[in-house]
Design a protein around this nucleic acid. Sequence first.
DNA 1: ACATATTTGCTAGGTAGCTAGCGAGATTGG
DNA 2: CCAATCTCGCTAGCTACCTAGCAAATATGT
Lengths: 153, 153
Amino acid sequence: MVEKRNGSDNDLVGAWTKRCYFAGRAVMDSVLRPYDLGSVQWYVLYQLATAGPTMQRDLARLLTIERATMTGIVATLVRKGMVEQEPDGVDHRQKLLRITATGAKLWGELPDLSFIRSVAFGGIDDADIAVAVRVLQTATERLENLLQKGTAS
Amino acid sequence: MVEKRNGSDNDLVGAWTKRCYFAGRAVMDSVLRPYDLGSVQWYVLYQLATAGPTMQRDLARLLTIERATMTGIVATLVRKGMVEQEPDGVDHRQKLLRITATGAKLWGELPDLSFIRSVAFGGIDDADIAVAVRVLQTATERLENLLQKGTAS
DNA sequence: ACATATTTGCTAGGTAGCTAGCGAGATTGG
DNA sequence: CCAATCTCGCTAGCTACCTAGCAAATATGT
């Protein structure tokens, strides 16, 4: 969203940011659909398969999503038998997430998703990509900053 | 999402695209929350207040969302009494959307949201913005293209 | 030691996106 | 003129994001 009234690039960049995000997500979803996995579920499996058991709250921070959102994602994966959730021995509030044998098996069958990135950005001038990253990063920082101030008031 | 494994900008651009999109959306949502409006609901009001009555299917195309998604958004606004939905006289499948008096009143009270864009992108070099738009646009087109091919098969 | 944070995960409820499939209406080809 | 096809909006059911508020556990300050 973030509009698109008059004609300058300033108006368009917000719209393209949204569209690009959704396009990437749609491709990811369509590849994962046959496996009955969403994109964030994929990321959780990726993390647990690659980096080993992880605290639920750390995973939420990695993905920069809210704890409540994480609860739902994890619940789905637990229901499907892909992930185990075990209370931490020391701190009983926290829960440790671990991939199950079923989950590991599925992970092994999943196709490599890195081609998505290649398709999207392959062949584009590195300098241009760097500029794009800088613009997005700057905008994001300003917006997140604005949000915090608004929340604090 | 769209990952972030090794260290090149190529990996980061997807992540920042997502984060930037959500940051902008979060600011918009936080401004609109007191009025009990979501960001897309705002856009529908904007369109109807600015451009006059609009066909539902045209609005879905403008926002590049699915008809089914539009159904939900419109239903919410109708429930709140902000928007009227009237079958077209000629083509009985289509529905014309019109802002109500209540909706127009609310629209008059809403703050101007263009400051969000100013905060996010103000002061950034126009050439850099143009580069960012080009990168995002290219990536989006490639991804949407890929998706169509995948769907066609 | 105990009252007061703070942190963690959960529930409840809302927004915004998607696909799949339905029925009613419009269009098009033979 | 009728059959096949397309279009539009709807429902049902899913993912993934959010806030607000709760209960339990931990951490902190006096």
